[in-house]
Simulated assay, not measured.
Amino acid sequence: MSEMRMRVSDEDREQTAQRLQRAFSEGRLTHPELDERLERALTAKTYADLLALIDDLPADEPRVGDVVELQQANGAVKRSGDWAVPRRLRAGSKYGTVDLDFSDAVIPHQVVEIELDLQYGNARITVPEGAVANIDGFESTWGATRTDDVPSRPRPGALYFVITGRAKYGGLTVRYPRKRWFTH
């Protein structure tokens, strides 16, 4: 099935409505245009329906259905701190590691899909406190795959990471941020 024909969630509809309201506040849409598009956004069924409502607006973040790719042949792929997280992320390294720290990231989606492709390296994913991560779709031929006390079952209101992919000679660790101790 084409990704554009996939059914959308209430969250997808709400994010599109927020984008339309932002465009109205910037003067890009008139009040009647906003009203019409909001009605269509809140009753949209597929990603194609939503995309048609925002196609003529400037992109200020990855759009519905976008995939961001982070690839490195011989080094590490690393993201941490304050960074914008796309809905879908592909990360890979042939001879290096993947280190994705989501603890201080801006995550506008309830579900984040991560596809890993590793040959000779490990992946470490740090999720925000309270998030859950499903790693059932990840396989490792010669490495360990583990979650350090991070549950895998979806929970209402909890950020949900779905991690898929493979590592030939490496593994995957999903964990919460380390506790920071401050001294005065």
Rank of each mutant, 00 (worst) to 15 (best):
I114C: 01
Y176Q: 13
S25P: 00
L70M: 15
G92A: 03
Y120F: 15
G157V: 10
D117T: 13
D12H: 03
D10R: 11
L172A: 08
N122T: 10
V174Q: 02
R7Y: 12
T30Q: 08
W181T: 09
V85R: 03
T183F: 09
I54Y: 07
A17Y: 00
L29H: 02
E33C: 03
V67I: 10
L51G: 06
R175C: 14
R87Q: 12
S2Q: 15
Q72T: 13
V77P: 03
A52G: 13
D136G: 09
F161M: 03
A44N: 01
L159K: 14
A41V: 03
G121W: 04
T43L: 04
D104W: 09
S2N: 14
V68H: 07
S25Q: 09
V67P: 05
H31P: 00
Y120E: 11
R124P: 09
R178A: 13
R19F: 13
S80D: 13
P62M: 06
K94R: 15
I114Q: 00
L51D: 08
G92Y: 02
R37W: 00
M4E: 11
A133T: 08
G96W: 15
T145C: 13
V68L: 11
W83T: 07
R79F: 01
G96S: 14
M6P: 02
L118W: 04
G65M: 02
F24R: 00
A48P: 05
E26A: 14
A123W: 09
K78I: 14
R88W: 03
S25D: 12
L34R: 05
R178W: 12
R13G: 05
A48H: 07
E69K: 13
G92E: 00
P32K: 02
R88E: 04
S140E: 10
T141R: 15
K168G: 07
P151C: 03
H184P: 14
I125P: 00
T147N: 12
R153H: 14
F102D: 01
R124D: 15
L29S: 01
L100D: 04
R37C: 01
R180E: 15
M1E: 05
H31A: 08
E14D: 13
N122D: 14
G81L: 07
D149G: 08
S25C: 03
Q15A: 09
D49S: 06
L42Y: 11
Y120V: 12
L42I: 04
Y95E: 10
Y160L: 09
P62N: 04
R28F: 06
H31D: 04
G81E: 05
G65V: 06
G157M: 07
D60A: 06
A17W: 03
D60V: 14
H109D: 06
A59F: 08
